[in-house]
Simulated scan of single mutants.
Amino acid sequence: MGVFRITAYWMNEDEYGDMTSTGVKAQLNHTIAVDPKIIPYGSEIMIDGQIYVAEDCGGAVKNNVIDVWVEHPSNSFGVKYKEIYIRMEN
């Protein structure tokens, strides 16, 4: 899909806690926030060999930006720019 700006987010960063915009609880090594106009909810996205599911969005998540759910702010990794891939069904 191209190169995306990858950042992290965590519980209590905002008023929603671990509840996503799709109504499921965010999960470590699973949940990402995306711009649903670019990546549809439910899409499986590979970043650095790890598969994540697009389950959330956010005010700062626009265009080619992805937020990866982490357990705690100490697990944040700053900003990375990575090639991402969408998993296609056979």
Rank of each mutant, 00 (worst) to 15 (best):
residue 86 I to V: 12
residue 9 Y to M: 06
residue 88 M to W: 06
residue 14 D to T: 15
residue 4 F to C: 01
residue 86 I to A: 09
residue 37 K to G: 10
residue 64 N to P: 02
residue 13 E to G: 10
residue 4 F to K: 01
residue 48 D to T: 06
residue 7 T to V: 15
residue 33 A to P: 08
residue 16 Y to P: 02
residue 32 I to V: 15
residue 43 S to W: 09
residue 82 K to V: 08
residue 12 N to R: 13
residue 20 T to Q: 03
residue 21 S to D: 08
residue 36 P to F: 06
residue 27 Q to T: 07
residue 31 T to C: 02
residue 30 H to L: 07
residue 53 V to W: 04
residue 69 W to L: 05
residue 76 S to R: 11
residue 53 V to G: 03
residue 3 V to E: 12
residue 24 V to S: 05
residue 30 H to A: 05
residue 46 M to N: 09
residue 76 S to M: 13
residue 4 F to R: 01
residue 32 I to T: 06
residue 64 N to R: 14
residue 86 I to D: 01
residue 20 T to P: 09
residue 86 I to E: 14
residue 73 P to G: 03
residue 34 V to E: 02
residue 32 I to C: 08
residue 1 M to G: 11
residue 39 I to G: 01
residue 89 E to N: 13
residue 37 K to M: 12
residue 41 Y to R: 00
residue 27 Q to F: 03
residue 15 E to K: 13
residue 68 V to R: 04
residue 17 G to H: 09
residue 54 A to I: 09
residue 40 P to V: 02
residue 65 V to Y: 11
residue 9 Y to H: 08
residue 7 T to Y: 02
residue 39 I to K: 00
residue 37 K to N: 13
residue 2 G to F: 10
residue 62 K to P: 04
residue 18 D to K: 14
residue 38 I to F: 08
residue 11 M to G: 11
residue 50 Q to L: 13
residue 72 H to T: 14
